[in-house]
Design a protein around this nucleic acid. Structure first.
Length: 272
DNA sequence: AAACCTTACAACCGCGCGGAG
DNA sequence: ACTCCGCGCGGTTGTAAGGTT
């Protein structure tokens, strides 16, 4: 059974030869690819347009980043997957130079197994029913939260005690950053902590990422709704108004090692 | 050295969506 | 309103390379 898009043609399938790659690169760099179905003819290839598109996007594109995924990229994949699920194209948008196919393969061959080994369900990211909970996730919280006010601005500070090597990422799971769509995660030696504004995410309008508030996006990528110092996370309420901060925190879901921390957390938005 | 197994990833398949006619 | 076509996406399969017995 051939592709439905090219069932009338006799096309080659399977692995691409270097000669075919060369033809495709030459064609696309010369003519671009306004219509993939016409690319095989232009390039002199016995392939269908769909196959050409796939080969270009997943392998030949010059802006592709080759090589294995970094720890930071892995963190981003896990974090975004937790929110958007198997929407690989959506996840790949957060990883410049990576393709959806690459992310999907990496997930299936590597991350999935890691999560299972940690007793986490790769689909829900929650602890599996029969998994032995890690002692640190049930009894010891990796942080405390306090609210402060300085220079006329309010801040909420999340302090990590005895947690060296805190790494963190603030990212935008919907493909654009605005005040209702952030997520944040932090990883220490013993804990993975995630703060997600899932409730508001569900009601988000669908907006083209590139067109949406580019200036605001740049600004917030620099400032971030929160940022992390050596061992503490600071919510920057300067970037948002107080009403938003209150609603964001009260509607956020907070997880540590896949477990909800609702019962443990005692942050009072009124203090902000 | 050969057979078998595992892993990574390239490529294919089928479906759904959106635009054009 | 309907059909057709091209494209993009996610799931799945195929295959080559490396590891193990």
């Amino acid at each position: 059974m051939g592709h439905h898009c090219c069932s009338k043609q006799k096309v080659k399938r399977g692995l691409w030869s270097p000669e075919e790659d060369e033809k495709l690169i030459k064609c696309i760099t010369t003519y671009g690819h306004p219509c993939w179905s016409s690319v095989p003819k232009q390039a002199g290839l016995q392939r269908c347009g769909k196959s050409c598109r796939l080969r270009w996007i997943n392998y030949l594109r010059p802006d592709l980043k080759r090589g294995s995924f970094t720890a930071q990229e892995e963190t981003i994949i896990i974090d975004v997957h937790r929110i958007v699920g198997n929407r690989w194209a959506q996840i790949a948008k957060h990883l410049p130079g990576r393709t959806d196919n690459e992310v999907k393969n990496f997930w299936n061959s590597c991350i999935k197994k890691k999560l299972l080994a940690q007793g986490l369900d790769p689909k829900t990211h929650n602890l599996l029913p029969n998994a032995r909970p890690s002692p640190s996730s049930t009894t010891v919280l990796p942080f405390t939260i306090t609210s402060t006010s300085s220079n006329g601005f309010d801040h909420a500070v999340m302090s990590f005690q005895d947690q060296p090597n805190v790494s963190s990422s603030c990212f935008d799971p919907t493909g654009f950053i605005d005040e209702a769509s952030y997520a944040w995660s932090s990883t220490t030696a013993d804990h993975t902590l995630n703060v997600m504004n899932q409730t508001q995410l569900q009601g988000l309008p669908q907006v083209e990422p590139q067109q949406h508030h580019q200036q605001q996006q740049q600004q917030q990528q620099q400032q971030g709704p929160m940022h992390v110092n050596d061992n503490e996370m600071e919510f920057n309420t300067e970037a948002f108004d107080l009403d938003f901060m209150e609603s964001a925190l009260s509607s956020s879901d907070v997880f540590c090692n896949g477990n909800s921390l609702d019962d443990h957390l005692n942050w009072d938005c009124q203090d902000l």
